[in-house]
Amino acid sequence: MDREFYRQQAQRVRDLAEKADPFTRQRLLDLAGRYDARAGSPSMASRMIERPLPRTAPPVSTFSRAGEA
């Protein structure tokens, strides 16, 4: 397969990802990244669709409790 085919497939998959639920979107973006790699294109990170980063709380062990030092 040639580079143009992989570039087109990556763009098609990204277009689908725009309309997908978060789980499917991530999988489609990963697939698009694999197509980019085969095409020799820049990494997927530079072409990713904007999405918020997941919010995480620090581990419970980092909180100090009364009486602990």
Rank of each mutant, 00 (worst) to 15 (best):
A69W: 01
D30V: 09
Y35K: 04
T56D: 12
L16Y: 00
R25Q: 15
Q9S: 09
M48Q: 13
R51E: 10
S43M: 02
L31Q: 08
A37V: 04
L31V: 10
R7V: 14
S61R: 14
Q8V: 03
E50P: 13
D36I: 01
F5A: 07
R7K: 09
L53R: 12
M1S: 13
Y6T: 05
F63A: 14
A32M: 06
S64T: 14
D21E: 15
D36E: 15
R51F: 00
A20M: 04
L28F: 00
P58H: 05
R55W: 07
Y6L: 05
P54E: 07
R27Q: 14
R14D: 11
S46Y: 08
F5M: 03
G67T: 10
Y6P: 04
E68T: 14
V60H: 10
M48R: 11
D30P: 00
V13H: 00
P22N: 04
R25T: 05
P52V: 09
A17Y: 02
P54A: 07
L29Q: 12
A32P: 03
Q11V: 05
R12N: 09
M1W: 00
Q9L: 07
R38M: 09
R38V: 03
A17F: 01
R25L: 00
Q11W: 00
R65H: 08
R27S: 11
D15F: 00
S61W: 12
V13D: 05
R51D: 07
R47V: 12
S43C: 03
P54K: 03
E50G: 14
D30Q: 07
R27K: 08
T62Y: 01
Y6A: 06
R47K: 10
A39G: 10
P52M: 05
F63L: 13
K19I: 08
R47F: 06
T24F: 00
